[in-house]
C-alpha cells in the first residue's frame, strides 16, 4: 500500500481537484437528471417516483397542448437553417480569403471573429434593437424602399424566422478560421497537378479543396448543430415573453418548467430528450470519423 502511494500518489494528487469538481458538478448531475426525470421532485421533500414510471415523459410532450412538440419543431427548423447557412457561408468566406495576402487574411478573419467574442446575450440584444418594430433598423430599411413595417418579433408567423435570420447573418467565425486552417494544410502539388491537367479554378476548388476538408466540415456541422439545439439567449432576449408557442425552443421549455413552474421532473424529462438528440449527433460524428480520409 505504501509503495503504491509512493509510486502513484502524485498522479492521483494531480487529477484529484479536477475529479472532485467534475464528480460533483457534472457526473452526479448527469446521473441525477436521469433519475429525477422519473420522479416528482420537491426542494423540501426530495424526490418520489411517479406512477406510471414514464409519466413525466408523457407530461413533457402533452402539457399545455403539446407546446414541447412545437418547441422541438422550432428548434429543428432553427438548426436546419442556421447550420446550413453557417457551413456554406463559412466555406465560401474561407475560400475567398485564402488567396489573399497574409495581412488581408488576418484582417478579414479578425473582422469576422470580432462579434464572436461578444456574449450571445449582447448579440441577441442588438438584434432585438434592429428588429424593433417602431425604431429598429430593419423597418427603417423597409421604409426606405417604400414597404410597410413588419412586426419582426411579435408576429407569430414571423418571429421564429427573425430569430433564425439573426443567427444566419451572424458570420460563423469558427468555421471561417477552421476551414481556413484546413485549406492551408492541403499540399500545393495537388493544385499544381490539377492545373497542368487543365482544371479551372472552380473545378480545382470543388474536386480538391472541398473533399479534402471533409473532416473539418463534419466537425463543424456537429458543433454548430449541438449549439443550435441549445439555443436560448437569443430567444430569451429577442422574444422575452414568447410569441405564443411559435418561439419556444427545447431549452426555453426546460427553463420554464424547471425554474418558473418548479416542475423539476418534467423539466428533467425534457432535458433528457435534448441529451438523446445531442448524443445521436455526436455518435454520427464518431462513426463518420472512423472512415476518414487522411492525406
Amino acid at each position: 500500500m505504501r509503495r503504491f502511494i509512493q509510486k502513484h500518489g502524485w498522479s492521483y494528487a494531480f487529477i484529484l481537484p479536477s475529479l472532485i469538481t467534475f464528480t460533483v458538478f457534472v457526473l452526479v448531475p448527469v446521473v441525477w437528471a436521469f433519475i429525477i426525470s422519473f420522479q416528482e421532485y420537491s426542494l423540501v421533500r426530495g424526490g418520489a417516483w411517479v406512477t406510471p414510471i414514464y409519466k413525466n415523459y408523457v407530461t413533457a410532450f402533452t402539457q399545455f397542448g403539446g407546446v414541447f412538440v412545437s418547441a422541438i419543431r422550432n428548434t429543428l427548423i432553427y438548426t436546419l437553417f442556421t447550420v446550413t447557412a453557417n457551413i456554406v457561408i463559412g466555406l465560401i468566406l474561407a475560400s475567398l480569403i485564402q488567396p489573399l495576402s497574409n495581412w488581408l487574411r488576418t484582417f478579414f478573419r479578425a473582422a469576422y471573429y470580432l462579434p464572436a467574442v461578444t456574449s450571445a446575450l449582447i448579440i441577441g440584444l442588438t438584434w432585438a434593437y434592429i428588429f424593433n418594430a417602431q425604431w429598429g433598423f430593419a423597418n427603417y430599411l423597409l421604409r426606405l424602399v417604400g414597404l410597410p413595417p413588419v412586426r419582426w418579433l411579435s408576429d407569430p408567423d414571423i418571429a421564429l424566422g427573425s430569430v433564425t435570420l439573426s443567427a444566419v447573418l451572424t458570420v460563423p467565425a469558427t468555421a471561417v478560421v477552421l476551414f481556413s486552417a484546413a485549406m492551408g494544410s492541403i499540399p500545393r502539388e495537388y493544385y499544381e497537378a490539377a492545373e497542368l491537367d487543365g482544371a479551372g479554378p472552380f473545378r480545382r476548388w470543388w474536386h480538391i479543396t472541398v473533399p479534402l476538408i471533409k473532416s473539418t466540415t463534419l466537425y463543424l456541422v456537429v458543433i454548430y448543430t449541438i449549439a443550435s439545439f441549445e439555443v436560448f439567449e437569443r430567444i430569451y432576449v429577442m422574444v422575452p415573453s414568447g410569441v405564443g408557442n411559435s418561439t419556444q425552443t427545447i431549452v426555453t421549455q426546460i427553463y420554464n418548467n424547471g425554474f418558473k413552474d418548479l416542475n423539476f421532473g418534467v423539466a428533467s424529462a425534457q432535458a433528457f430528450v435534448l441529451f438523446v438528440m445531442i448524443a445521436l449527433v455526436a455518435a454520427l460524428q464518431f462513426r463518420a470519423l472512423r472512415s476518414d480520409v487522411e492525406y
Partner: peptide, 12 residues
C-alpha cells in the same frame, strides 16, 4: 451541455 444537468446542478 449544461442544459441537460441544470436541475440537479441547481439542487446541489
Amino acid at each position: 451541455p449544461i442544459h441537460v444537468t441544470l436541475i440537479p446542478l441547481y439542487i446541489i
